[in-house]
Write a protein that binds this DNA or RNA. Structure first.
Lengths: 212, 212
DNA sequence: ACAGTCATTTACTAGCGAGTATATGGATTA
DNA sequence: TAATCCATATACTCGCTAGTAAATGACTGT
């Protein structure tokens, strides 16, 4: 079959796929460095070295540094958006939906591209990409807010200003990207479940079912 | 009295005070630019221009750009630390204390130096200042965590991992610095009260006192 | 065999911005 | 009135890094 031959005589599709994979490899090397050292402190020579190539090779796959950062955050934002849309299309009351959404959101925040989203400030992107970045974030915010509103409407979520409630929730979740350490004892799921429990239950203890 | 004469024949103390005030003025111009455009995108020429002076004047008050950023975050962190320590020294149960602390914390996050704290990533500071920055943040984290633990111990706060609960709370509060707009309709207190209400009460609605 | 395309290299440009050397003039002290 | 200090300015250096020009060699399709 083709797969054994492809190393020596790759087909057109093989080469297209390889190009995409190399592009992704650049993004992965870049996002790790961005998360570790920050966007400005990461030179494209750094990224190139991490991949054992030279800088012009990177420019063969991307127009400029901006585009690299944007593609990183886009991947993170797309994951969140897909999670949010999945939740909207499934059933359940507002709180139930929001709970699932927050859990998925939290887990994405423990991963490279997710971390990159909240560690990247708007002003690190320039011009067009910045506008797109903002638009994507706004879109997600609005989806989350709709779920919150739905929950308030069906009575499964306590009343309040949906905008402020949404910011409070996403703030707590976004912040995971600033402290989570994949090498630590806690898995992403542990962190996600704990965050959801605190946000849903609140700090004040709830009486048990039978209690007065 | 001295104040009328001081403009023409300033005393030694007057001149010391003026020096301190000019230092603070530099910090204020700097922090505004840092918050608006980011640390790297802010050149010291920008800061100097905002004050109608030139760059060497700034170096007359600060050793380097690093020191300027550090002094900015230190002011923000000091405010939070004072709020945290004040709460610890006052009375009240764990939840009551934490509620006050979170409110103060939130309000600080709407102000210039507070915003700067959470918008500044560790790696923007170098060497010594970075270590101090981390240490100050850790100290605050531990104080908050102690209050959380106290509340869990006295039963006023629901059980859970104090570390994760603290991160969830401070995350929500830190994030205020990323979206709060002082020119908007909401005052800092409105935002603070809303955030505290959501975090204390949780998303799930609570039954009223008499309800089954 | 040939013209073209692709991936990658070496070697460069160009601009920005942190930080400095040095000058100036006004006030302070001796 | 000389020596000194303080705040500020002008005019510079130097390093870093984004981005580019041009070459090379492998492979492709004709």
């Amino acid at each position: 079959m083709a797969s054994s031959a492809k190393a020596l005589w790759p087909s057109v599709e093989d080469r297209e796929r390889e190009r995409r994979e190399k592009r992704e490899a650049v993004l992965h090397a870049a996002v790790r460095s961005f998360n570790e050292k920050g966007f400005h402190a990461t030179s494209l020579d750094d990224v190139a070295n991490a991949l054992n190539v030279t800088k012009p090779t990177i420019y063969h796959y991307f127009a400029n540094k901006d585009e690299i950062l944007f593609e990183c955050v886009r991947r993170g934002l797309d994951s969140i958006r897909h999670a949010a849309e999945a939740v909207e299309s499934e059933g359940g009351g507002g709180l139930e939906r929001l709970r699932r959404l927050m859990r998925d959101y939290a887990i994405i925040m423990t991963r490279d591209f997710g971390m990159c989203v909240t560690r990247t400030a708007d002003h690190e992107l320039s011009g067009d990409s910045r506008a797109k970045f903002r638009a994507l974030k706004r879109e997600i915010d609005q989806t989350v807010r709709r779920v919150v509103e739905q929950g308030m409407a069906d009575g499964s979520i306590a009343g309040g200003d949906p905008r402020l409630v949404t910011f409070t929730l996403t703030g707590a979740l976004n912040w995971i990207a600033h402290w989570y350490d994949p090498r630590g004892a806690l898995g992403a799921e542990d962190v996600a479940d704990a965050a959801v429990a605190t946000l849903v239950g609140g700090l004040a203890p709830r009486r048990l079912q039978g209690e007065r």
